[in-house]
Simulated scan of single mutants.
Amino acid sequence: MKLVGMLDSPFVRRTFITARMLGIPFEHQSLSVFRNFAEFHAINPLVKAPTLVFDDGEVMVDSSQIIAWLEHSAAPGKSLWPLDPGRYRRCLQLTSLGLAAAEKSVHRVYETKVRPKECRDPDWLERVDGQIRDTYGLLEAHVGTSDWLCGDYPTQADITVAVAWRFTHFIAPGLVADSDYPGLAALSAAAEALPAFSAAHYS
């Protein structure tokens, strides 16, 4: 089984970290959807990261669907979701907010790094920046007194939120200050110290 994509993608990284935390063996092939388009296209014509390539050559895309399959089929009996219904709902809610922050941060990359400078829309960029800040504001309000977002151990919510936070800092330094979101900053530091996160380091 092979995971294809660059670790500076929050969606590739959350998938990589999830597989590591579940103890699932896999190969990682670091290909860029931009710089390695032809090579990526030969693996998956969609050229979408992450792509999971099964041993029979079939492919799957979308980090959430890949993660669902990993838990259900590759690591039965293991889960990064709480069993308690209330905590499960909270975990889904915070994971969805983390995904939103990551998605809006990717939009910012496309607007500032991919789109030609003369075609950029400052009003759109202002809107996206506001959505990023507001999403992290919602997440900050949900940080409790526990070490992790949904209890005493890291869940998919912690993975996704911490990955999104690191990505936003990487692509837009200064957009969200640690001092304005101290709970998220502390969560990120704790998550990045985990072996699975260290294995997925990028710079």
Rank of each mutant, 00 (worst) to 15 (best):
V53Q: 06
H72P: 01
D147E: 15
I67M: 06
I159G: 00
R35V: 08
G151V: 10
V53W: 02
V161I: 08
A100T: 14
S203F: 12
G98C: 04
K117N: 11
Q93T: 15
P154I: 03
I66C: 02
A68W: 09
G23T: 06
L99E: 09
M21D: 02
V12N: 00
P116G: 13
M21T: 04
L3I: 12
F26W: 06
R87T: 10
D152N: 15
T160V: 11
G57I: 01
G57Y: 06
C119M: 15
C91L: 05
A190R: 15
A68T: 11
S79W: 03
L138Q: 12
T135S: 07
L70N: 01
D180Q: 15
Q65H: 13
S64A: 14
W124G: 07
V106K: 02
P182Y: 10
D8Y: 14
S9R: 03
S63A: 08
V109I: 10
S30C: 14
R90G: 09
M6S: 12
I171T: 12
H41P: 06
T15K: 02
S188I: 05
Q29E: 13
H169P: 03
H72K: 13
R115I: 12
I67Y: 00
V33W: 13
A74F: 09
R133K: 11
A68S: 13
R20E: 09
Y136H: 12
V59W: 03
G5F: 04
T18F: 02
F34S: 11
G57E: 01
I43N: 05
S146R: 11
S188D: 03
S63E: 03
Y110L: 05
L194V: 08
I66K: 04
K113Y: 13
D134G: 12
L139N: 00
P82N: 12
I24E: 05
S179N: 14
